[in-house]
Design a protein around this nucleic acid. Structure first.
Lengths: 352, 352
DNA sequence: TTGAAAGCGCTAACAT
DNA sequence: ATGTTAGCGCTTTCAA
């Protein structure tokens, strides 16, 4: 039988036993009240005498006591925790390194703090996205924000079917059962392309993997802008560049191998744009003189690049809040809507 | 901001009836056994019949049941959660945007997953670092990893005094009560400076805020390398550049205002190096011809910069594991040691 | 205004 | 090999 630690017990120096953590019963005893009163006092209930309330609050503070959140959550059947999940490619494990996703994490951290939620971050193998529901099923988090839609449309639909409260950063697709928050990719693509057209460029290359929903919409914007200007979409200018590794380098190589003339480039991420610019430079193209370049994301380093990168900014600070609020609303009301954020063209030297 | 035009985008559940979450008792009833048996079966106890064990496991799987972690943790008096804290400047809120810290988050996510812990991420106002202990006192996390020692030495010591299990990424200082894991900044500074000396440079500027422990050690390395080469440390070449904003730009301005000749630059972060290089370029210095530059951190973009940045790499993948293991050991044994990771010179074009 | 008692969902002695 | 029972630390009826 285990005796509860008691004041009469001698504590030995060699004794490695955890000094028992203070709990509500201790505060109650020291204040000469019941735990109910302590609980009420600390939660600011008006059922308790003001004088006792402050006495208890001070006692707690002086002893460095804080309510055990695990127990509180169990009792209240809540968790006040949201999980942020970033699918990671099992092979490269590279996704969490993209500056864009990382910026998003910061924005989410702020938004969740503001709403009084804790943020649990986990990387999940992209091939096992269904394991995401565990985070919810176990009560670890009351909902899930997933950053990185990639090609997981079907798996995400399955999650939604399982009633997991879920909001995804990405593009809206047909037959979509889950809720997305994202920026206006179509317009982003238009803005970028129009800007290049305004600079007098006519042979605008497009770098991006059209299989990805967001990129596909940026491509739609690209096509729309060309069409507005009365220009055809020339397939030989479109390269399926991937986001990983030296995507830009490979894409430039591919484009050059095609022997096609081009005087501008719209790359679907800043990273892609930067590696592309470096490759262009190696091949003695000058940016922006020979090739005007526009990127996408406006990561922090875009302005420090040489030349400073013209790009499409996604509104990060708003993005976090939008994701969080969409999720909280879904948890509350079991219904919420897709939400589209404005994109903005940031003009710097790489395109002028 | 617009709401999306699509029709099918509202996820609704007409049925608002709370479907009670499945719990162990339900599984027990359905399996015709007691909850103890279910508990044991799911935890793989050998006390339970193999046949029953698989029966229960399958039942649970088919019903999508997972153990409620909150209740489990309460009962087991554990949390299997580690908090990762990033102090944020109350004014700028900029710290979580430094690519280096963000890379660290990724590394920690991997390391914690590997050790079976959840990662709670929170941004805490740098002026109220003592509030960090709440995360521990409330039982929310069993320990804390703090990224960003900055000038908070005293506050960190106080936290350690309060018995909060804590490991800090940073430099080891005298009279330090908390445990640090960090890279070998002194050697990093030496490697960078020696490399510049090897390139024949003799007037090497140093950019960094020596008030910060890590930077101070890099500066020590810088001094040591100069001294090895029989050169004096020239104060007019040392600029107290800050990490934030256009730190590099200001530092270059300051240096030029001093009218001192320099042919190399060691900047204490890659971001600093990059902004400095851009400023140098504006002033018609060529890099590396006129000024050879070495940065610090080896963030992902360093290799994509123009010119590709020579830098000191801190071993990120190892860093996460080292931090986590130091913390877990501290939680287990109430003792752990500071740990120093090797730094490595990565030579690229900016210095040659 | 306060206290007693029940129980959140689980685990682990202690029985059988 | 399985069931009974007593909590983990808290909140909240219900009773006083």
């Amino acid at each position: 039988m285990k005796t509860s630690p008691d004041t009469a017990n001698t504590t030995q120096r060699a004794d490695k036993k955890e000094q028992r953590r203070l709990q509500m019963a201790d505060i109650a005893r020291l204040a000469g009240v019941s735990t109910s009163t302590v609980s009420r006092a600390l939660s600011g209930s008006k059922l308790v005498n003001d004088e006792t309330k402050t006495r208890i609050a001070e006692l707690a503070k002086s002893l460095n006591y804080s309510i055990n959140i695990g127990a509180q959550n169990l009792r209240l059947k809540q968790s006040r925790t949201i999980a942020v999940v970033i699918p990671s490619d099992s092979a490269t494990r590279q996704h969490l390194t993209d500056p864009f996703f990382l910026g998003m994490l910061g924005s989410l951290a702020d938004a969740l703090t503001e709403r009084g939620f804790d943020m649990l971050v986990s990387r999940v193998d992209a091939e096992q996205l269904d394991s995401v529901s565990q985070i919810y099923d176990t009560g670890r988090a009351s909902g899930i924000i997933l950053i990185g839609q990639w090609r997981h449309h079907d798996q995400l639909n399955e999650l939604a079917l399982r009633q997991v409260p879920l909001v995804v950063w990405g593009a809206q697709l047909p037959k979509q059962l889950y809720v997305t928050v994202g920026s206006d990719n179509i317009n982003g693509g238009k803005l970028a392309t129009r800007h290049l057209l305004d600079q007098g460029r006519r042979a605008i290359a497009f770098f991006g993997d059209i299989q990805l929903p967001e990129v596909s919409q940026r491509y739609q914007g690209y096509c729309a802008a060309l069409s507005e200007a009365g220009l055809p979409v020339r397939e030989e200018l479109v390269v399926a560049a991937s986001f990983v590794e030296d995507g830009g380098k490979q894409a430039v190589a591919e484009l050059c191998a095609r022997q096609v003339k081009f005087d501008a480039l719209f790359a679907c991420s800043d990273l892609l744009a930067m590696t592309a610019i470096n490759s262009l430079r190696e091949r003695d193209f000058s940016v922006p003189a020979d090739v005007a370049v526009v990127g996408y994301d406006d990561i922090e380093l875009a302005r420090y690049f040489h030349p400073p990168l013209t790009t499409i900014r996604q509104p990060m600070p708003v993005a976090g809040l939008a994701l969080v609020d969409a999720l909280l609303q879904q948890i509350d009301t079991h219904a919420s809507q897709a939400f589209l954020l404005d994109t903005e063209l940031i003009i710097r030297r790489s395109s002028q």
